[in-house]
Design a binder for these strands. Structure first.
Lengths: 145, 145
DNA sequence: GCAACTCTTTAGAATCGTTCTAAAAGATTG
DNA sequence: CAATCTTTTAGAACGATTCTAAAGAGTTGC
């Protein structure tokens, strides 16, 4: 059992190292720790602050500045995507595919909109000289009393 | 000609005063100056900083703090709407109706998406205990080389 | 394995948009 | 006009993020 777990973990770690190398990033202790937190399980939506807390909680000690650096490097490498729904803080999404979001305003939480069923019709052509980089839909939710 | 213009302006001003009163806001020099800038002509998308510059340019002298206060008061009164497309600054839109936006990333400019033809299909139901406050579509544009 | 080199990390300072504070100025009511 | 309430404002404070430059770690060639 022990060995299975550690095999699984090291396999993950190998993938991660390859991922980092492919992005031209050295596989440092810090980047591996953050990579594990971000890419190990299911999709996540994190802020720098909360990822830093996660890392600390897991015993990885790194500075907040490194978390910011890393999030931007991962974003530039196409491993993450930035989501802007709130003027206060920036969210990073591990799901880089085409999809949209629910935003729970009361709690400041993001969730992917499941399925790829969302269709947007009737969008005008982009103005001359510009092209669409992305169409983002945010469904803002509030708790019902 | 002169009189026509000044009549038009004072008519506008009267509307504005009424608008402010209806919102429970005293018609102060500062609020009237900002109101004129915001509601006189066509729809606008402003940041606090740029509205402050506009005001200064027009000869109205008021502090940046007042611009922030006023923008929020107008927003609470339903006269403006906040639009979040950029982590750096907050935009305020004089068009409070249901509509969506183009965002010119290179220039940090917002534009309404003309017409009410945009339809969004296939949205899942909001999670239990929540309700949709608003669905926002942002079409991010970049200049074509 | 070790030197030489390059890339990373980091603590702390700096930045920037925005909000807060408390005191002065202005609007309103009777 | 006096009394009262609201607004404005300069400047301090704030919080997320970025910058700085010096120390630390990863990499490469030998």
């Amino acid at each position: 059992m022990r060995s299975t777990v550690s095999k699984a973990v090291s396999a993950h770690k190998g993938d991660l190292v390859a991922k980092l190398r492919a992005a031209g990033l050295r596989p440092t202790r810090q980047r591996i720790a953050l990579g594990k937190l971000l890419f190990a399980d299911c999709d996540r939506h994190v802020t720098a602050e909360c990822l830093h807390q996660d890392a600390t909680r897991v015993g990885a000690s790194l500075s907040l500045a490194t978390v910011y650096n890393t999030l931007h490097q991962f974003t530039n490498a196409g491993l993450l995507r930035q989501v802007i729904v709130d003027g206060e803080k920036t969210y990073f999404d591990t799901n880089t595919g085409d999809h949209h979001h629910f935003y729970f305003e009361d709690q400041g939480l993001l969730a992917d909109i499941p399925g790829d069923d969302v269709r947007i019709d009737g969008l005008p052509k982009p103005p001359a000289g510009t092209e669409i980089e992305r169409v983002e839909v945010v469904v803002r939710l509030k708790s019902r009393d």
